[in-house]
């Protein structure tokens, strides 16, 4: 099994948090306020399905991911942790 580069993963998490705050226009929240394991939808950060559209666009534009792959990986939308790991894995593919 390939070893995870924790530094690279942390960079992806930071980038994702910053993009979420900026592109989703999250009010009164800074990137530092978002916990890595915080649930993104419903309870937790309280995002909704239209925010999911923006997240898909963020993943496409900033990390070059394909919407077809994302559709099959619903579990990655759980938290920043899961999103970042997914981006990391796809980069290594």
């Amino acid at each position: 099994m390939q070893e995870i580069n924790e530094e690279e993963l942390a960079d992806i998490k930071s980038a994702l948090k910053a993009l979420l705050v900026k592109d989703l226009s999250l009010e009164d929240i800074t990137p530092d306020d978002i916990k890595d394991d915080e649930i993104l939808f419903g309870e937790g950060l309280g995002l909704d399905s239209l925010d999911a559209v923006e997240i898909v666009v963020i993943l496409q534009r900033n990390f070059g991911l394909d919407v077809k792959d994302i559709e099959n990986r619903k579990d990655v939308f759980h938290s920043i942790d899961t999103l970042a790991k997914y981006v990391y894995e796809k980069r290594k593919d």
């Binding site: 399905s49 239209l50 999911a52 919407v67 994302i70 559709e71």
Partner: peptide, 15 residues
């Protein structure tokens, strides 16, 4: 469906 079917919507339009 999960997230109101939004992921499937994005995929099929993209296709």
């Amino acid at each position: 469906k999960f997230l109101g079917g939004i992921l499937e919507i994005l995929k099929v339009i993209d296709e």
